[in-house]
């Protein structure tokens, strides 16, 4: 419990900054929507002229941007990127920082088992992620309520946040597993981020090129896409199961490899 509380405290400040960031992200995004929609011009006709590849890269393909929900769907990919970057870095650093800051000789000579320490640290990271997700959810519902002109969007937002939550957990354990396996734990955070950007790039490539469709299970960013979640698809059970399996395997790997690790001191 003491380790858990200490970790919560030491990540408090960064969580506050991320929360402020995510609020402004939603606020500024929706403010732009307001400017668009009040200009009287149809966004859709304007967007139709854009090349497909650009729309894909910007995350706006197949969304009805004249509606607040569609606009939010475009915004979602950026929120998702922020949330998963936060989760991946958090998962990696919370494990790696004892070695990075050379405090492992303090913590790991205390009468606690390594698995207890990892459990406490991952629980603290989990709480951070839940708070991050709730802040995004609440910001979105409040700000969408302001701009949606009566369009019912709360259900869609909640579904998207549920998908985002699963991906947050997935990237958190990608980070923690890397920190447990790698000899130089310090590099885990940058590697986890690299994996994240790579899989995001892959998801864009899959959208651009029909032939790559088979690769969509390789990138978590194709698991819960706004257009499919919002327009009736909901969360697909197959990808929920796939995510759960990946999360299970990576959590196990974190514990298994950390237990056997020679700590750098």
């Amino acid at each position: 419990m003491n380790i858990f509380l200490k970790e919560l405290k030491s990540h408090r400040k960064s969580l506050i900054f991320w929360s402020i960031g995510i609020f402004f992200m939603v606020a500024s995004g929706m403010a732009k929507f307001e400017a668009f929609s009040s200009s009287g011009q149809s966004i859709n006709t304007m967007m139709a002229d854009l090349p497909k590849s650009l729309k894909v890269v910007l995350g706006m393909s197949d969304l009805d941007l004249s509606k607040a929900s569609g606009y939010y769907g475009m915004l979602f990919i950026y929120l998702l990127l922020m949330a998963t970057i936060h989760a991946a870095m958090l998962g990696a650093t919370i494990i790696a920082k004892e070695e990075r800051e050379k405090t492992s000789e303090f913590l790991f000579t205390k009468p606690v088992a390594r698995k207890t320490i990892i459990t406490a640290k991952l629980s603290a990271a989990f709480v951070n992620i839940v708070i991050f997700n709730l802040v995004t959810l609440v910001s979105s519902i409040i700000l969408m309520g302001k701009y949606s002109h009566g369009e019912a969007v709360n259900r869609e937002i909640s579904l998207l946040m549920a998908g985002m939550f699963i991906l947050q957990i997935l990237f958190m354990v990608i980070g923690s597993a890397l920190a447990a396996v790698k000899k130089k734990a310090k590099t885990a955070a940058s590697q986890a981020t690299a994996i994240l950007l790579l899989t995001y790039g892959l998801s864009v490539a899959v959208d651009l090129n029909e032939h790559l469709k088979g690769l969509k299970y390789l990138t978590p960013f194709k698991y819960f896409e706004a257009k499919q979640v919002m327009y009736g698809g909901g969360l697909k059970p197959s990808v929920i199961v796939l995510s759960a399996v990946l999360i299970g395997v990576l959590s196990f790997a974190t514990f298994f490899f950390y237990k056997k690790r020679d700590l750098n001191v």
């Binding site: 800051e101 050379k102 405090t103 000789e105 009468p111």
Partner: peptide
């Protein structure tokens, strides 16, 4: 974990959580 209850260890180079006060570190310990 069991035997470490009765071990006190002083490493050759000491590193602690920088943003903590001495008081907090000792309490945490």
């Amino acid at each position: 974990p069991e035997i470490k209850k009765e071990i006190g260890y002083l490493p050759s180079e000491v590193f602690y959580y920088d943003n903590m006060k001495v008081k907090d570190l000792l309490k945490y310990s």
